[in-house]
Each structure stands twice: as structure tokens, then as C-alpha cells.
Simulated assay, not measured.
Amino acid sequence: MTCRLQLTRYLQLSQMRAELERQADALLAAHPDYQRLRTVPGIGPITALVILAEAGDLRRFGHHRQFLKFCGLGLAKSQSGACQSRERLSKRGNARLRCALWISAMAAVRMRENAFRDKYIRHVAGSRGRDLQP
């Protein structure tokens, strides 16, 4: 009985997500930033909608580093006296936007063939023996 309830709820949520995707696509189909975001592997209609809602006009950022800093994806170095650590994400930015971009990147890495996956595999191969997690 519980399994059927869970399955029914999952199907309802899947239908709601599909409807939301259709609405986002219909609403933003003519928006140039939306069209550009949809060409990036891992970014679907809902994620593109979240990115545009959280970031606003993407053209206001003169350089990609400004956008990265706005998202909290810029690098920050932690230093104290003689102790120096390696660079990490600053996480001083829009958390929802950072989460949407992170989930999209992970989806792109899991896809079979795209440039993101190839670059990720080269990066991981170059850092064997080192922990990639901060």
C-alpha cells in the first residue's frame, strides 16, 4: 500500500514538472538569454528559469568573473600568518544560483558525450592521488 502511494505521488510530481517545463519553455522561448542557456549541456527549462530569475539580466555582467563572484563561485584564498591554504570557492553569493549551476554541471558531467565531461575527465586524471573535495 505504501509503495503504491509513493509511486502515485512520484507520477503526480513528474506530471507537474513536465507542465512546469512546458510553461517555462512557452514563456521564455523568445528570450535570448534563455535560448543561450538552453544550449549548455545539463541546463533544462526549469534550471534556465531559475538562473534567469536569480541572476536577472545576464548582460549586466561585463566579465565572466563578475558573474562567478555574484554566484559565489569565485576562488578565495585563506591565509593566517605563516599558514596558507589552497584556494576554495568563496561561497559568498547567491546560494540558489550556485546550487542550480552546480546541479547542472553534475548533470553535464554524467552525460555521455559533451565538452564538459571531457574536460572533467582530464581534470580528474591530472589530479590522481589528490583529494578533489575541499
Rank of each mutant, 00 (worst) to 15 (best):
M1E: 00
L5G: 06
L7Q: 15
L7T: 15
T8V: 05
T8F: 12
Y10S: 12
Y10Q: 14
L11A: 06
L11V: 00
Q12R: 14
Q12I: 11
Q15M: 06
R17D: 11
R17E: 14
R17L: 12
E19Q: 13
E19V: 02
E19R: 07
L20W: 15
E21P: 01
Q23F: 07
L28S: 07
A29Y: 04
H31M: 10
H31E: 15
L37W: 00
R38C: 01
T39Q: 15
T39L: 14
V40S: 04
G42Q: 08
T47F: 03
A48H: 05
L49Y: 10
L49W: 13
V50R: 13
I51Y: 02
I51F: 08
A53T: 10
E54M: 03
A55W: 01
G56Y: 00
G56M: 02
R59H: 11
R59M: 11
H64V: 08
Q66C: 12
L68N: 06
K69R: 07
G72R: 09
L73W: 01
L73K: 03
L73M: 13
L75A: 11
L75N: 06
A76Y: 03
K77F: 01
S78T: 07
S78E: 15
Q79E: 14
Q79H: 04
S80V: 06
G81S: 04
A82W: 03
A82R: 05
Q84C: 04
S85M: 13
R88G: 00
K91E: 02
A95Y: 07
A95F: 04
L97H: 03
L97W: 01
W102M: 09
I103E: 15
I103T: 14
S104K: 08
A105Q: 11
M106F: 08
V109N: 07
R110F: 08
E113D: 06
N114G: 09
F116P: 00
F116R: 05
R117V: 12
D118E: 14
D118H: 14
D118I: 13
D118C: 12
Y120E: 01
R122N: 02
R122P: 00
H123T: 08
G126P: 03
S127I: 14
R128T: 00
D131P: 04
D131C: 07
L132P: 04
L132T: 01
Q133A: 11
Q133W: 09
Q133L: 15
